[in-house]
Amino acid sequence: SLSVDNKKFWATVESSEHSFEVPIYAETLDEALELAEWQYVPAGFEVTRVRPCVAP
């Protein structure tokens, strides 16, 4: 099958004044980091952490 098993990760994104967490959907932690950097670094943010979303 061609289905992709995307998992939810939380990326911590920082600017000079703010820090916030955004959801990233990817297959692996490395891919989540790449996606977060691709989305947020060009906008002037720094991705400081990516972690798996742990269900309660």
Rank of each mutant, 00 (worst) to 15 (best):
E27A: 15
V4N: 13
V13S: 01
V41R: 07
E46N: 07
V13R: 00
Q39C: 15
P42L: 09
T28Y: 03
V50H: 01
V4M: 11
V54A: 09
T48Y: 00
D5I: 14
Y25G: 02
R49M: 14
L33F: 13
E14A: 12
V13D: 00
D30E: 14
Q39I: 15
S16R: 12
W38Y: 13
E14W: 07
P23V: 15
S19L: 06
K8T: 07
V22C: 07
D30G: 10
A11F: 06
F20E: 02
L35H: 05
A43E: 13
E21P: 01
E17L: 10
D30H: 11
H18T: 13
A36Q: 02
A36M: 04
Y40S: 04
E37L: 12
L33M: 11
E46G: 04
S3Q: 11
E31P: 01
S1I: 10
A32E: 00
L35A: 06
E21W: 06
E46F: 07
Y25W: 14
D5L: 14
W38E: 15
Q39W: 14
Q39M: 15
L33A: 06
A26P: 00
T48E: 03
Y40A: 04
F20M: 07
L35Y: 08
A55S: 12
T12M: 07
C53G: 07
S1A: 12
A36E: 02
K7W: 08
R51I: 11
S19C: 10
L33Q: 09
V47E: 02
H18A: 12
H18L: 14
S3M: 11
A26S: 03
V47Q: 01
C53M: 06
V4C: 15
K7Q: 07
V50L: 06
S19K: 11
A43S: 08
E27T: 14
Y40L: 03
P42I: 08
I24D: 00
W10I: 13
R49S: 15
F45S: 14
E34L: 14
H18G: 14
R51L: 07
L33T: 08
S3T: 09
V50K: 00
K7A: 08
T28W: 03
V50R: 00
D5W: 08
L2I: 13
V50G: 02
A36G: 03
S19A: 09
T28F: 03
S1Q: 11
V22S: 02
F45C: 04
F20W: 08
T12L: 11
E37Q: 12
T12D: 02
E17H: 14
I24R: 01
L35C: 06
E37D: 04
T28I: 02
E46P: 03
G44F: 02
H18N: 08
I24E: 00
S15V: 06
E37I: 14
Q39G: 05
E46W: 10
V4H: 14
W10Y: 08
A43R: 11
E21H: 06
E27H: 14
P56H: 11
L29W: 10
P23G: 06
G44V: 00
V47F: 00
A55I: 10
D5K: 14
E34D: 07
S3A: 12
C53N: 09
L29F: 06
Q39S: 06
K7S: 05
V4P: 13
P52V: 10
E21D: 09
E14K: 14
S1T: 10
E14S: 13
W38C: 09
L33R: 15
E34V: 12
T12A: 03
V22Y: 04
E37R: 15
Y25Q: 04
L2M: 11
I24S: 00
R49Y: 08
P42W: 08
S16V: 07
N6D: 06
E46L: 08
S3N: 11
A26D: 00
S1W: 08
L2C: 15
F9M: 01
K7C: 15
L2H: 13
Y25F: 11
L2R: 10
R49T: 09
P42T: 10
F9S: 00
N6V: 15
L35M: 08
A43Y: 13
K8C: 15
A43L: 15
A55P: 10
W38K: 15
F20K: 04
S15A: 06
V22H: 02
V41A: 12
Y25S: 04
R51F: 07
T12H: 05
A32D: 00
R49A: 14
E14L: 07
V54W: 10
V54G: 08
F9W: 13
A32K: 01
F45A: 04
T12V: 05
V47W: 01
A26N: 01
Q39Y: 15
P42R: 07
S16Q: 10
D5T: 14
R51V: 13
P56W: 07
W38A: 15
H18I: 14
V47A: 02
K7D: 03
S1C: 15
S15Y: 06
E46M: 08
